[in-house]
Write a protein that binds this DNA or RNA. Structure first.
Length: 111
DNA sequence: GAGGTGACTGCGA
DNA sequence: CTCGCAGCCACCT
């Protein structure tokens, strides 16, 4: 059905995340109207590295700002490294000032 | 075809 | 405060 579109939507939203900002799987799911299926967002990210262009999946964390999917980047350091490169400070897999740099697509894109 | 798994979340105890 | 459980749905075995 529209499964592929859902994936594509997820990738598009993730690519729209401004540098130095992060969002959550649930926020993306809610933005796409499938807030109950936040797991699918994470699953879509699982295939993010197989598509082109690259999706900045490191800007997507769980609702607590925890890097739950860091291991899917190949190495756990990779995600932290990418985040640090964007001046996003991570301590013990926890994004610092997560609440401040949080980027809500539903609000920013105003849909 | 059926069962198990998971990069999540919200709510109840 | 922490811990457990149910709902969600695509993918893999």
């Amino acid at each position: 059905m529209d499964r592929k579109i859902f994936y594509d939507e997820v990738y598009q939203v993730v690519r729209l995340i401004p540098r130095g900002r992060v969002t959550s799987y649930g926020a993306i799911a809610a933005y796409l109207g499938t807030k109950s299926s936040s797991r699918m967002v994470g699953y879509a990210m699982n295939a993010a590295h197989t598509i082109f262009p690259t999706v900045p999946a490191h800007r997507v964390v769980n609702r607590n700002g925890l890097l739950t999917g860091k291991h899917h980047f190949g190495t756990s350091d990779e995600m932290m490294k990418l985040l640090n490169d964007e001046e996003i400070h991570v301590l013990d897999d926890q994004v610092q000032s997560f609440k401040t740099i949080f980027w809500d697509p539903a609000a920013e894109l105003d849909i």
